[in-house]
């Protein structure tokens, strides 16, 4: 019973780790994406740089994903 409860809590934690980091990345990408499109509108040569800034917030989700994988498979 206790083992089942622990497994359930781990699953909830893993879900929260991915879900909340996803939300954070979404909020960050909203602003970064809008700014990137604004910059490209003024100067199309900035596309490459804007793309790099655009994907930076994605790293937050990767951190969340790593934590959730560790939670599920290592703990």
């Amino acid at each position: 019973m206790a083992a089942a409860e622990a497994a359930g809590l781990i699953a909830v934690g893993a879900g929260l780790a991915v879900g909340l980091t996803g939300l954070g990345a979404g909020i960050a990408e909203g602003n970064v994406g809008a700014a990137a499109v604004g910059a490209i509108t003024e100067d199309a040569s900035l596309f490459g740089k804007a793309m790099i800034f655009m994907v930076l917030p994605e790293t937050i989700v990767i951190f969340g994903l790593v934590i959730s994988i560790l939670a599920i498979f290592v703990m």
């Binding site: 909203g30 809008a34 700014a35 990137a36 604004g38 910059a39 003024e42 100067d43």
Partner: peptide, 19 residues
Amino acid sequence: RSVRKGNYAYTVTRVKAKK
């Protein structure tokens, strides 16, 4: 709410590029 608030990131970036 965010639409009502305004698209600051987009407009400000364009304005900074113009500046």
